[in-house]
Design a protein around this nucleic acid. Structure first.
Length: 826
DNA sequence: GCAAGGTC
């Protein structure tokens, strides 16, 4: 029997399908799928099935000095015991073993792990290795026709990484955690990838904090030719003869303003017209996929999770890849053919097939691991997938379309006009060949109209405006920007970068989105910079990559590299020896700063956000047990302390993070003081007749509100109220329930909640029948419906009446063309 | 209860 081992179950099944011509049988062994046909068995691992760790005598953090971990043994233990057991079982019956894990460094190491398990039960069964970049008939057959041997040097390179990451990560993590007394769930972690990523975020925050805004002025004016007017901006030549728009001195700005405002005509002195080719985007690798998904409203985590589901269901290729070049095996025309008859995706495919020649775009990265992310040609029916999945699937399909579509062409028209020796410019752009934008509507195609004018022509000048502005601090990194930057720095991998961000959230290092570093994060990066600079520097990865290459090519051994690394860490610990207390104090202080709201009104100590034994949050005094003052927090969400302070109590306001339900709670002391019963609305429908209970607007201590019975807790009748806004009780009454109608004042526009009972009944009806008729449109998912609703488009009727350009401006990730195509279909 | 890397 020949045993074939792949990296994952999915790959095992597809390889079995290809090699058996679809005739394989499948069975389960210890919960692991085994595919069998004509003397062959194929089984999938689940990535690494063994992991590295220290022997158990090192596991108590308090008993072991962190420095001892540097020279501790590193053992391999099974992490997926059922898979290891299955592998041993199958290996005993094998006359030949073929390792078919992924074609990259980590795949070689995973293959080596399987090799060791097999060797453990059989010293001389032949073990060979096959390599292929995508699981297609051609590639797989070729690979099995020309088997090779496992590359032990490449696997050793991966092992060196495992050992170095474990030793550095564990030793320094334990050192920091012990120094601050943070044990248990709240340990303070550092690592080769997470810490440089955190430093990126912290460095940007430092820049923002150190930023001092500068005042400057810009001038705009309207120019008019016949009946069409357009906006132009004042500019001048700076000392380097570059065009500059910002004026840094107020008197100069005023002088320019008055001179321009004085005139009523400007003469065209220069007209530049050029066409620009806008080339279609490159095939999706993981990072670019995350970026595109983020532009239509999906977090990195959500995008990857949806991609994973689409992959498992067979609709798209493997979502974790660095590759941006389609393999030769992919015939774009064949793939387009699969889509031709599709109701919503078919037209685009058909139009693409009309081209004389189809040449896909290529990116710079060509790797052996997996093809770029593209649709497989198996198309889900609309009912097979959720709205979000369909939206992401359509993105992947349309990205594939875009990579085989024509370039777009823009015409840029720059007009420079002069008035009283001052110059104004206007940049117009027009999309003259929409090219790939027709089938890939995710990029903005907003045009800026500037009319045709000739040099020497006179234009009417009016509405000169002087704008007083300030320079802005650099912007925080968004999640997808961080992932791109990590990729550029060479840290993390296609499979881990998005998880690293989640880890930083979990560890209490960053909060909110775009992520902001906590005080703890600033202190951790500070400490690392002072004592272990290497762990927060991308250099560590760069050096490790070079060392791994050396091991892989036989120029160095695993021991050479890990010994050097251990020595470096020894030095770091020598420097750390006397600083434990100082580092611990700083970390502890920062941890408290992250929880501080302001002074306790009873004793003047600090009020801190705390967590009860049951996991719920509340506010307690740092003076406890001397001061027992507490304030409640709402039961939903995780509290985030905002910068805003309550003018009355000097406490920071609190926001409750709960995904879509996130809301600003405000000052917890104000909320507690305002607790109690508000105006009575009418008789309680449950107990009014029998016991005289009445409904009143109530505010709980935690700040949440409801309409409840005055006989509570004897009567528990209640109706929900929105978290935000002031509630106004109007004179209008609901005839059916004999209750006043309510109006909520929040944001700019007050909105009518109406009768609280009717409102609740409507809410329940909506819950059971959620979904807008907009979802009937192809490619419109729940996300898009939500975004459209925010822009005032609730249903098809609204959509038909809408101005596509205006909506495209309001709704991120939806182009005017896409709206027009929806209008046409609606 | 540490890392980073696979996979789910």
């Amino acid at each position: 029997m020949e045993l074939i081992i792949t990296e994952k179950d999915n790959a095992a099944r597809r390889i079995a399908d290809i090699l058996s011509g679809g005739t394989y049988d499948s069975s389960r062994e210890n919960g692991v799928n085994v595919y069998e046909w004509g003397g062959k068995r194929c089984v999938g691992l689940s990535g690494h099935v063994v992991g590295v760790d220290f022997p158990s005598e090192y596991s108590d953090w308090r008993d072991v000095e962190p420095v001892e971990l540097i020279d501790a043994d590193v053992e391999k233990t099974a992490t997926k015991e059922n898979i290891v057991a299955t592998l041993r079982l199958l290996a005993r019956r094998a006359q030949r073993v073929t390792i078919a894990t992924d074609y990259d460094r980590e795949g070689e190491l995973i293959g080596k792990e399987a090799y060791d398990i097999v060797r453990n039960v059989d010293d001389d069964v032949p073990i060979r290795r096959v390599r292929f970049s995508s699981i297609t008939e051609n590639e797989v057959q070729n690979a099995f026709d020309e088997p090779d041997d496992l590359d032990f040097d490449l696997a050793a390179a991966g092992e060196a990484r495992q050992i170095i990451d474990l030793i550095w990560g564990a030793a320094l993590t334990r050192y920091l955690s012990l120094s601050a007394g943070q044990l248990g769930d709240d340990f303070i972690s550092v690592g080769r990838v997470q810490s440089p990523t955190l430093k990126l975020i912290v460095d940007r925050e430092r820049e923002i904090q150190a930023f001092e805004p500068e005042e400057y002025w810009e001038l705009f004016a309207d120019l008019r030719k016949d009946e069409t007017s357009f906006e132009a901006q004042y500019f001048y030549r700076d000392e380097d003869d570059n065009e500059a728009e910002r004026i840094w001195e107020e008197p100069v700005a005023n002088e320019v303003y008055e001179t321009l405002a004085d005139g009523d005509v400007a003469t065209v002195v220069d007209v530049t017209r050029r066409t620009r080719t806008d080339t279609p985007p490159e095939p999706f690798n993981t990072t670019q996929f995350i970026r595109a998904a983020s532009a239509i409203g999906y977090s990195a985590k959500r995008a990857m999770s949806i991609a994973e589901d689409l992959y498992t269901a067979g609709y798209i290729t493997y979502p974790r890849t660095d590759n941006t070049v389609y393999p030769d095996d992919l015939d774009p025309e064949d793939l387009l053919d699969e889509f031709v008859s599709h109701p919503s995706l078919g037209d685009s495919a058909e139009s693409l097939l009309e081209a004389d020649e189809i040449t896909p775009t290529e990116g710079d990265e060509e790797t052996t691991d997996h093809p770029p992310i593209h649709p497989t040609g198996e198309i889900p029916s609309r009912g097979d997938v959720s709205d979000d999945e369909w939206e992401v699937y359509e993105l992947v399909v349309r990205r594939f379309y875009a990579t085989v579509a024509d370039a777009a062409v823009w015409e840029h028209l720059k007009v420079v006009a002069e008035a009283n020796d001052h110059r104004l410019k206007a940049n117009g752009k027009r999309l003259i060949e929409p090219g790939y934008h027709d089938i890939y509507p995710y990029f903005s195609t907003t045009e800026n109209y500037v009319p045709d004018v000739d040099e020497g022509e006179e234009l009417a000048l009016s509405d000169v405006e002087l704008e007083d502005k300030q320079t802005q601090p650099p912007r925080r990194y968004g999640q997808s920007r961080l992932i791109e930057t990590m990729e550029g720095m060479g840290i993390g991998t296609k499979s881990t970068r998005h998880n690293t961000l989640e880890k930083l959230y979990d560890r209490g290092y960053i909060e909110s989105d775009p992520p902001r570093p906590t005080k703890l994060a600033m202190a951790v990066v500070d400490a690392a910079e002072n004592y272990a600079d290497r762990i927060v520097s991308e250099e560590m990865t760069a050096q490790l990559e070079a060392d791994m290459d050396a091991i892989a090519s036989g120029e160095a051994t695993l021991d050479d590299v890990t010994d050097d690394s251990r020595e470096m860490l020894e030095e770091i610990f020598a420097n750390l020896a006397d600083s434990r207390e100082e580092i611990g104090d700083h970390l502890r202080k920062s941890l408290k700063d992250d929880k501080r709201l302001g002074p306790c009104p009873e004793c003047g100590e600090d009020l801190l956000v705390r967590r009860s034994r049951h996991g719920s949050y509340f506010i307690g005094c740092d003076g406890y047990p001397d001061c027992e003052n507490t304030l409640p927090l709402p039961s939903t969400g995780k509290p985030l302390i905002l910068d805003e302070e309550c003018a009355e109590h000097g406490l920071n306001e609190v926001k409750m993070l709960a995904g879509r339900q996130t809301f600003v709670h405000g000052c917890p002391l104000c909320k507690a003081e305002n607790a109690g019963e508000g105006p009575v609305l009418g008789d309680c429908p449950d107990c009014g007749e029998d016991h005289g209970g009445e409904l009143a607007v109530k505010t709980l201590q935690s700040g949440s509100r409801l309409v409840g019975c005055t006989r509570y807790p004897d009567c528990e009748y209640s109706l929900p109220l929105p978290r935000r806004g002031e509630i106004e009780v109007t004179d209008e009454r609901c005839e059916e329930h004999d209750l006043p109608e309510l109006v909520v004042h929040s944001g700019d526009e007050p909105w009518e909640l109406g009768c609280p009972i009717c409102n609740y009944q409507e809410f329940q009806a909506r819950e059971s029948d959620s979904g807008s008729d907009l979802e009937a449109l192809d490619g419109v998912g729940a996300k898009t419906v939500e975004k459209l609703a925010d822009a005032g488009i609730e249903d098809l009727e609204d959509l038909i009446d809408a101005d596509p350009d205006a909506v495209a401006d309001d709704v991120e990730g939806v182009s005017a063309d896409r709206i027009r195509s929806w209008q046409a279909k609606a």
